[in-house]
């Protein structure tokens, strides 16, 4: 697992940027406005070293959307939003004049959908590029502190490494911006690496 090269990471970054592009397209169709999503970095981090500080997450409440998926590799993907950013994004997507408190009523389901769009877009990009099929559970949504979420993720994982993606999301005209953290913890990341090798072998 520690043998991920620059090229591996570059390939993953490209996969996720394509996923981000697809997610942005879906979201823009919902909000009727340009949505920009970029993935500035992909990292593989030792799970021992993962905490709210290393992920530059603050002490606030986070919304976490997670999906379990199976296929050539089984994994749990978690998307973290700060709660107030999440509400702002959903508020903008709904285009209503509702206050943040009122939005809370719809938060759960809307956040599930928002997370689901981004996670599915990344997974489908991966499936297209590496030519495999993934199955996934429906998304779950929970609100907790970053450390609580990370702790649970680490407990469920037997792997020493977690893939971390920082995602920037901007709804153009409304000047809404959010930073999302995408965590991928897998019992079989090695399988992902072998798919990467196979993919890179085809083009080098």
């Amino acid at each position: 697992m520690s043998s991920l090269s620059e090229l591996h990471l570059d390939a993953l970054a490209e996969v996720f940027s394509i996923g981000a592009g697809r997610a942005a397209l879906s979201l823009s169709e919902i909000v009727g406005d340009e949505v920009r999503i970029s993935v500035p970095s992909v990292q593989i981090i030792n799970s021992e070293d993962i905490n709210s500080a290393t992920l530059s997450l603050n002490n606030g409440r986070f919304g976490a959307v997670n999906q379990h998926f199976r296929g050539p590799f089984n994994a749990e993907a978690v998307l973290l939003f700060t709660e107030d950013q999440a509400l702002k994004i959903v508020g903008d997507m709904m285009g209503s004049q509702m206050s943040i408190d009122e939005l809370a009523e719809f938060e759960h389901e809307a956040m599930c959908e928002l997370g689901n769009i981004i996670l599915n877009a990344c997974l489908s990009a991966m499936a297209d590029i590496f030519s495999f099929t993934l199955e996934s559970s429906l998304p779950d949504y929970a609100v907790a502190s970053a450390d609580e979420i990370l702790h649970r993720l680490k407990e469920n994982s037997t792997q020493p490494y977690i893939m971390v993606l920082h995602i920037d999301l901007t709804i153009e005209k409304r000047h809404t911006a959010g930073n999302l953290v995408f965590l991928l913890s897998s019992a079989s990341l090695d399988n992902l690496v072998s798919h990467l090798d196979q993919f890179l072998g085809n083009i080098t």
Partner: peptide
């Protein structure tokens, strides 16, 4: 050649 294919 882009992943971003929104109308704009």
């Amino acid at each position: 050649f882009s992943a971003n294919i929104q109308e704009t």
